Computed example of a mutant assay.
Amino acid sequence: MKLNSNQLSRHLNGDLLPIYVVSGDDPLLSQEACDAIRQQARSQGFSERDVFHVDNQHFDWSQVLQAGNSLSLFADKRLMELRIANGKPGDSGAKAILSLLERPPEDTLLLLILPKLDGTTARSKWAKALQESPASGFIQLWPIEAHQLPQWISQRLAQGGLSATPEAIEVLCQRVEGNLLAAAQEVEKLKLLADGTQVTLDTIQASVGESARYDVFGLVDALLAGDAEHVLRMLQGLRGEGVEPPVLLWALSRELRNLASLAQLTNGGLPFDRACSQMKPPIWDKRKPLVSRALNRLSSDRWSALLQDAQHIDAQIKGQAAGDPWLLLSQVCLKMCGKKLKLPSARLY
C-alpha cells in the first residue's frame, strides 16, 4: 500500500509491515524516512541488521533469498536493507522481490531503498506489486519545490518549538537555495540562537555571523568551482569543527547525482538549460555557471564512477567496508575538482 511522508509517522505507531519501500531522490528526506523505520524496528526487537548494495546487473540475488530464509544467529528479529542505487533490480532481482513479497521471511523486516522510479519502472510488475500489496508500505518521497520551501521550513521550525517572521523565512529560503539538507542545518542552528521562540531577520543575520568558518555549502561551491586547494583546507576545517562524515556525504552525493544525470542528458543532445530544468529539484539559475564549469571537467562515465565511490564511503561510515571515510572523501573531492591525487590510496576493492 502507498504511504506519503506525512502518514509514515502515524503508521509506524502501530504494527510494522513485513516490507517497506522508500523511493525518492532527496538524500535528507530519504534518510529521515529510513531512520524512522529503523528506529521503530529496533523498538520492536529487530536488533540485527543486514545491508545489501545492489550496484550492478551482476548482483547475486540468491544471497538475499538465502539470508531471508536463514535463522539469525544473534537476534530474534532482523532488519534487511536492500539499496538499489539505480532503481532497476533487473529480471533476477524482480523475481526475488516478488518472491519475498509473496512469502515474507519470518521475523524479518525488509527495507528497500530506491531513487525516484521512472515511469516505465514504476509500471513494472514488481514495482506495482510493492505499491499495491497490503504486506508492504511504499513511501514515495516527492521533492520540495521552491514554492513549497517556506512552508517546509516553517513546519521544521515548529517541530523545534519556533516560529518565524515572513522576512526571516524569505531570507532563509534564499540562503539555502532549495537544498533541504542546508535548510535542516540552518534550523538546528536557529534553535540555539533564537531568543525565545520567535525567529526574526536579526536572528537569521546572527546565525550567518556565527556560522562556522568552514561550512558544508561553501565546500560544495568550492567543489563545483574546482578549487582543490581550498576544498582540502575546508575538509580539514570541517573535520576539526566536529562535522561528521555522513553530513558531508549527503551534500556530496546530491551534487554527484545531479552532475551524473546532467552529463547523461547533455551527452544525449539535450541543451544544458533544459537539462537543468528537468532535474528534481531544478538547478537554480544562479548556480548554473558553477554547475556548468564542473560538468565540463569530467566525462559522464567518470561522474558515474564517483557515485560508486560515494556508495563505498557510505559503507565505510557504517563499518561495512574497511578504510577511513575521510581519506576517500578527500580523494572524491579532488577528483571532482579534476585534480590528480597526492594522497595514499584508500580504495580497498
Rank of each mutant, 00 (worst) to 15 (best):
M80P: 06
E81N: 00
R83S: 10
A85N: 08
A85K: 08
G87F: 03
G87N: 04
P89H: 01
P89G: 06
P89D: 08
P89L: 08
G90D: 01
A94T: 01
A94F: 01
I97S: 01
L98P: 00
S99N: 03
L101H: 01
L101F: 08
L101S: 09
L101Y: 00
E102V: 03
R103Y: 13
P104M: 03
P104T: 07
T108A: 10
L110N: 03
L110V: 02
L111R: 04
L112S: 01
L112E: 00
L112D: 05
P115D: 09
P115N: 04
P115M: 05
L117R: 01
D118C: 03
D118I: 01
D118A: 04
T120Y: 05
T121R: 01
T121N: 04
R123M: 08
W126S: 02
A127P: 04
L130I: 07
Q131G: 13
E132C: 11
S133I: 05
P134E: 05
I139C: 14
I139R: 03
I139P: 05
Q140G: 08
Q140Y: 05
Q140V: 09
Q140H: 09
L141C: 09
L141H: 07
A146T: 14
P150D: 07
Q151D: 15
R156E: 06
R156Y: 08
A158R: 13
A158E: 14
Q159D: 15
Q159L: 15
Q159M: 12
G160A: 13
G161D: 12
L162Y: 11
L162S: 12
L162M: 12
S163V: 08
S163I: 06
S163F: 10
A164G: 12
A164Q: 12
T165E: 15
P166I: 13
E167Y: 10
E170D: 14
E170R: 12
V171N: 10
L172D: 13
L172E: 10
L172Q: 13
C173W: 10
C173N: 03
Q174E: 13
R175Y: 07
R175M: 05
V176M: 03
E177L: 07
E177W: 13
E177I: 05
N179E: 00
L181V: 11
A182I: 10
E186K: 15
E186Q: 14
E188T: 14
K189P: 09
L192Q: 13
L193H: 05
G196Q: 12
V199E: 13
V199H: 07
T200D: 15
L201T: 02
I204G: 06
Q205H: 11
A206Y: 09
G209W: 07
S211F: 00
S211N: 02
S211T: 02
Y214S: 11
